[in-house]
């Protein structure tokens, strides 16, 4: 005779077996003393757990109900997130904030325009350099340096810039 597994006995004890299986286990238990002993042990464990829980049963601590209701009252009195948002959006706060934002929107672009470095055309430097070179033809070492640096950046500069450089070199050579 094959004995019942412990898991089957536990499920039987908790009335969690399907009807057919439950009936089969009942029949087996009537015929098998070993499995009946194991069933009794499991049943005794359950009984002791319940008896012990009953013996240890505690009353609700004094003041518990009042403490819960006090927390609820505090929570009900506190503003909800929507109420906090509404309070923040009241005119006394919103009007100055919007005015400050509008002022900032106007002033900040103006400020950045003033702060921007003046942009001078490349030709201005080249012409100045050419004039200087004409005045001091022998002292002109910077023409070469300047051309070299301009050629180095030619890949990122515009085509008119290169044309300006060429014009400057012509002026230099003419000056010599």
């Amino acid at each position: 005779m094959q004995h019942l597994g412990n898991d089957t006995i536990i499920d039987y004890l908790h009335r969690e077996l399907a009807p057919g299986e439950d009936a089969a286990v009942l029949m087996h238990l009537e015929a098998c003393a070993d499995c009946s002993v194991r069933l009794n042990l499991e049943s005794a464990i359950g009984g002791r757990l319940r008896a012990q829980a009953k013996a240890e049963e505690l009353d609700l601590p004094l003041g518990m109900r009042e403490a819960i209701m006090a927390r609820i009252a505090a929570e009900a009195a506190a503003p909800t997130p929507w109420e906090r948002l509404a309070a923040w959006l009241r005119p006394a706060v919103v009007v100055p904030v919007v005015a400050a934002a509008a002022l900032a929107a106007v002033l900040i672009p103006m400020g950045t325009q003033h702060a921007a470095a003046p942009t001078l055309p490349v030709m201005y430097y080249l012409e100045e350099h050419a004039a200087h070179a004409q005045e001091n033809p022998l002292a002109d070492r910077s023409a070469t340096v300047m051309m070299t640096s301009l050629e180095r950046t030619a890949s990122t500069e515009t085509v008119p810039m290169m044309q300006a450089v060429n014009a400057a070199s012509l002026v230099d050579s003419g000056a010599r």
Binding site: L60, M64, R65
Partner: peptide, 9 residues
């Protein structure tokens, strides 16, 4: 709380 407070606790 009255009905189920003790059981819950």
């Amino acid at each position: 709380i009255e009905q189920y407070g003790k059981a819950t606790y």
